Simulated scan of single mutants.
Amino acid sequence: MPTLDDILEHIGGFDLFQKRAFFVLCLLSAAFTPIYVGIVFLGFTPEHRCLSPGAADLSTKCGWSLEEELNYTVPQGEPDGETFSGQCRRYDVDWNTTGLSCTSPLESFTNYSTKSSILLTTCQDGWVYDSLGSSIVSEFNLVCEDAWKLDLFQSCVNVGFFVGSICIGYMADRFGRKLCLLITILVNSVSGVLMAFAPSYTWMVIFRLLQGLVSKGGWLTGYILITEFVGLSYRRTVGIVYQVAFTVGLLVLAAVAYAIPHWRWLQLTVTVPNFFFLLYYWCLPESPRWLIAQKKSDEAMKVIHRIAKGNQKRHQVFPYCQIMAY
């Protein structure tokens, strides 16, 4: 009995049908990029310093430039060894005190003659970020003592990749490549949109974890599906190009992130197109190799007919239909 590879040699191992299927699946591969490396843009840490109540008003009153304001009100290179102490510490003084000098404001405080003798405190009133856009770091203040939360955010994604790849790989073998692919696309799209509207850091991590659980498994399912559509001699090529599409996605993501510097809008922009991948329900058939492995020869022949028709070689599949039916 002829194998599927024998049939593909006659109806086209990588003809028009497979090329179209390959193209639409490469779009899926490129769309996986924002989840894998999105932390670079979503979690960008801008230059920041402690918010000192009254310092901005004093700066306006004295007519300081930004450089002068930072020099007078932000600690730099303190003796405690904190090279960038201004990012996580501020002077423990009241800038609203009347009578402060505009040339040496710190000397106006009783018993304080030098910067090194002034006590420091934590950023109790928040931070000031020098950025035109926003990121999850600036919105949820993931700096200083809470900087570890940014690492946790990405770690949850990686854990999702690991667990999801195993579970979804099993699901793809048990229930079919196409069904598994569609489910992962749906969950990935919905959780990505919900993340864009997450009201807190905790909810954001939960939705990102869901994306991690399904996105890598969905990407692998797409990889398996396209390699099972093509002839044996084309598998290596489509596998490599499928991964190259991921690299193309990196370039597109960088351009989109440059144009949209606000993380919520960026997340929404890179997520919404994923809903169009649900059209795979009509664009792609089930893997004929999986159907044959599941003893579903009739359904496999329908897919082979569809491939032959798409390759305009429908008449060449008839002899094999009779043999497989037998």
Rank of each mutant, 00 (worst) to 15 (best):
I35V: 14
W219T: 00
P273D: 10
R289S: 11
G63P: 11
F246Q: 10
L225K: 03
N158H: 07
P105A: 11
L51Q: 13
Q316F: 15
A255M: 11
Q154R: 03
T221N: 14
C283N: 11
L182D: 05
N188Y: 15
L220M: 13
I224M: 15
T97W: 01
T121G: 14
A31G: 05
W282Y: 13
V137L: 08
A325V: 05
L232G: 06
E69Q: 11
F276G: 00
L210F: 15
N274E: 10
Q87P: 00
G217A: 12
K313G: 02
S135E: 07
R236Q: 11
F175Y: 12
I323W: 11
L58R: 11
E139K: 03
C62M: 05
M301C: 07
P285K: 02
L186G: 15
A21P: 03
G212F: 02
A259C: 10
E68N: 01
Y326C: 12
S189V: 03
L100Q: 08
W265N: 00
L119N: 13
L27S: 04
T3Q: 07
A21W: 00
Q18Y: 01
C123T: 08
L100A: 02
V128D: 08
W290F: 12
K295Y: 03
D125L: 01
Y129N: 06
V190A: 10
Q312V: 05
L251I: 13
Y201K: 00
F41S: 12
T114C: 05
L232H: 15
T98V: 08
V214C: 11
V157H: 05
K216T: 12
Y320G: 04
F32H: 07
I323M: 10
S200C: 05
A172R: 00
L120N: 08
R20S: 08
F207Q: 00
Y234K: 14
G43K: 04
P79W: 00
V214S: 06
K178M: 04
K149S: 02
W64G: 07
F14C: 04
T237A: 12
D125H: 15
K178R: 14
A172C: 11
V214R: 05
E286G: 07
R236G: 14
G38T: 10
L16K: 14
A257P: 01
D298Y: 15
M204F: 00
W95Y: 12
T103H: 14
L225M: 14
T122C: 03
F161A: 14
L70E: 06
L194P: 08
G218N: 07
G176P: 06
W282P: 00
L16S: 15
P75W: 11
A293C: 03
P53L: 02
G13C: 04
I136G: 09
C123A: 06
E9H: 09
I206D: 03
F153R: 00
S104F: 02
G86S: 05
L279Q: 04
F161I: 15
S116Y: 13
F140K: 04
G176S: 08
G192W: 01
G126V: 03
K149P: 08
K216Q: 13
I166A: 14
L51N: 13
D173R: 02
R20C: 03
L220H: 01
L51C: 01
Y320Q: 09
V37D: 09
T269V: 12
C283A: 14
L279S: 12
L213D: 12
L213F: 15
D94L: 07
F275K: 13
L181D: 02
T73V: 13
C50T: 08
I39H: 15
L291S: 03
V93Q: 06
Q316L: 15
C123D: 09
I136S: 00
F23H: 01
